[in-house]
Computed example of a mutant assay.
Amino acid sequence: MAQLDQSENTGVPSEVDSYHSLFPLEPVPPPNRLQKTSNFSYITSCYKAVNSKDDLPYCLRRIHALVFSYDFHAGAETMFSRHFNDPAADSYFTKRKWGQHEPPPPRQHAGLLPESLIWAYIVQLSSALRTIHTAGLACRVMDPSKILITGKTRLRVNCVGVFDVLTFDNSQTNHVTLMPQYQQADLISLGKVVLALACNSLAGIQRENLQKAMELVSINYSSDLKNLILYLLTEQSRLRSVNDIMPMIGARFYTQLDASQMRNDVIEEDLAKEVQNGRLFRLLAKLGTINERPEFQKDHTWSETGDRYLLKLFRDHLFHQVTDAGTPWIDLSHIVSCLNKLDAGVPEKISLVSRDEKSVLVVTYSDLKRCFDSTFQELQQAAAGPL
């Protein structure tokens, strides 16, 4: 894990409450160049830190004198950095100089995002808003700079709840009276994010560019996407709900559901492999505590006698075999197969040859497992000490 040189970064504390090993996730500006962010109107900074209670990494967002803790996702990037970090993408919306003609609207093959990707984002963001709104709360940070992307298309909304803390008014008796207004603002913000994705430019959501942006959407995307954007951006007399856009999503929801299920299958398969890897690692770790132990209870020959000698020969059978020409014979499938048989204690017989090749011991894997379990238990009892 990356470590910070405290001598060169005196402005970063070594510890904050129960968090330590702070590392900036954003460039730390000099003290004379601190600027307020456009989202929160406060000077903010972001760090990765380790919690001393569970030894897990977290993301710390510092806003003035407040510190907010969030889950840390390694390798995540913001929607802004992935899709809106190219100034050339704004060329269609920039004002043309005198005498220049209106540039033609770009096509999907000329840099615009695939519609399937935009709908994948819509399903996830609307699902997040639905969860928040159902709880009687509001997101208030639906912005490309606060939407994290992990992997290819997985979205997470960051900094949720920050505005609730920064704008808390203790003198107000009913704090939920403004919540419907905030929820309507969430829908408008979602519409702006979708429009920016369709235009592949944040310039498209500026008021003076809305007409050109909607023309671009009409040319390159389906009417469902256009209608969804118009519905989200158009203020209406009645209160709108995020559930209202479900008919516009339609059967595309099942596409995202299938993709999610397929991803779960892949993750479960990988997890099953790691479970097996962990089981084999524990076997090797236990075997390593037994083999070649210099001394045990003042007995210097402990690892070379009795059951321990059998385990030493088994270790040589695993890792130190050679070919007829005397060269090392390395076969990972042999190592994995033998460890699995040891763990299961199968009755299959195995020939263990001493290093001087003067003796051959024929034992079963069940015998080796008995020796292995009893020897490691003996070490554990000695480590625990007398009760």
Rank of each mutant, 00 (worst) to 15 (best):
M1H: 06
S7M: 13
E8H: 13
G11I: 14
V12F: 14
E15Y: 13
H20L: 09
Q35F: 04
K48L: 02
Y58G: 07
Y58L: 03
H64I: 06
A65N: 15
G75Y: 09
T94N: 14
T94G: 12
W98R: 14
Q100T: 13
E102M: 12
P106C: 01
P106Y: 00
H109I: 10
I118G: 00
I118A: 01
A120E: 11
Q124M: 05
H133G: 00
A138F: 01
A138Q: 01
C139G: 06
T153G: 02
F163Y: 06
T173W: 11
T173P: 04
N174L: 13
V176N: 08
A185M: 11
I188S: 08
L195H: 06
L202S: 04
G204R: 03
Q211R: 12
K212H: 10
A213W: 00
M214I: 13
I219V: 12
Y221M: 07
Y221P: 00
N227T: 14
L230A: 08
N243C: 11
A251D: 11
A251K: 15
T255N: 07
Q256P: 03
D258A: 15
M262W: 09
N264K: 14
D265T: 07
V275Q: 10
G278H: 08
G278L: 13
R282D: 10
N291W: 12
F296G: 05
H300W: 14
W302T: 00
W302M: 02
F314P: 00
R315G: 07
H317Q: 09
F319A: 09
D324Y: 15
G326D: 04
G326Y: 09
G326P: 03
V363E: 03
Y365W: 05
D367Q: 13
D367P: 04
C371Q: 13
L379P: 03
A384C: 08
G385Q: 02
